[in-house]
Design a protein around this nucleic acid. Sequence first.
DNA 1: GCCTTTTATATTGTGCACAATTTAATCGCT
DNA 2: AGCGATTAAATTGTGCACAATATAAAAGGC
Lengths: 156, 156
Amino acid sequence: MTPEPDAPDTAKRPKPFDPLALDHQLCFALYAAANRVIRLYRDQLEPLGLTYPQYLTLLVLWERDDLLVGEIGEALSLDSGTLTPLLKRLETAGHIVRTRDAADERRVRITLTKQGRALRAKAVNIPESIACEMGLPLETLVQLKQTLTTLAANPS
Amino acid sequence: MTPEPDAPDTAKRPKPFDPLALDHQLCFALYAAANRVIRLYRDQLEPLGLTYPQYLTLLVLWERDDLLVGEIGEALSLDSGTLTPLLKRLETAGHIVRTRDAADERRVRITLTKQGRALRAKAVNIPESIACEMGLPLETLVQLKQTLTTLAANPS
DNA sequence: GCCTTTTATATTGTGCACAATTTAATCGCT
DNA sequence: AGCGATTAAATTGTGCACAATATAAAAGGC
């Protein structure tokens, strides 16, 4: 099946490397993998009434409550254009409260409600469940996370 | 710095593993890395007047022209709800043409215009440029792509 | 104390991503 | 041929993601 070394010009040759071939794009692999993982989460989060970015926001607040909008934004690399409406939806759902800081009226403090804190118990087994669905050995996943974290952390 | 084995209960202990800590989430590393890489592309694609998903769509068409909407959707794991408006914008920009298939009026064939084909030359050096900006050794990037492709390809 | 600059959040507008539904054409079965 | 089932794309509606801008409050210079 390999072409003869001295085949004539009309014979099949190995294709020249195509830098724009979809299969060669790390960016597409990353994009497709991210979309797929978010889809996996959707199924787990739908019973909790949460979207994936809302879940990430709650992860931040479950670790440290009473944060400014900007602090959440820094943790997730999101700006107020994304976070403001998202936080309003989490407030409408009863998971958080948004309060203007009395000492600095520009700031908005985000605090969990009792309901928001209680939601954590329903989410605690999601990561392991997703890791299973990914169908890759744990060792591979750990190394993958390490590489991705480096990639995400480089100067934006 | 490690706590005494027989330290009293009030002494500092190593924190119990928190499965919901943001720093432990592969999903967040993936989400943040994907967002960052798309931001890197935005700077490169802006002069071409393309968004990142539009660029991916053109990658597919530069490899094989004259595809159905559904075939592009399968290549990119996107549905018509995403692709129909995106393709209409590419058509408005003059890069593609959308034509109802005469033999099967349900189908819409997507073909590149001359302008759409010409755009390829302006995009051909983007992947290498992005790879540099990522700031990771090529070896790492190759392996990362391999792992992500496996992750994205598992049954959805 | 004013006035410019900076900071924190909100708003507006565009473009995905996707679920759910709709429309219309083709297929399959009798 | 007739008709229910399937298929392909479009439409509708929600929720990000982000650029650009707006609003308003605080900080800093003079």
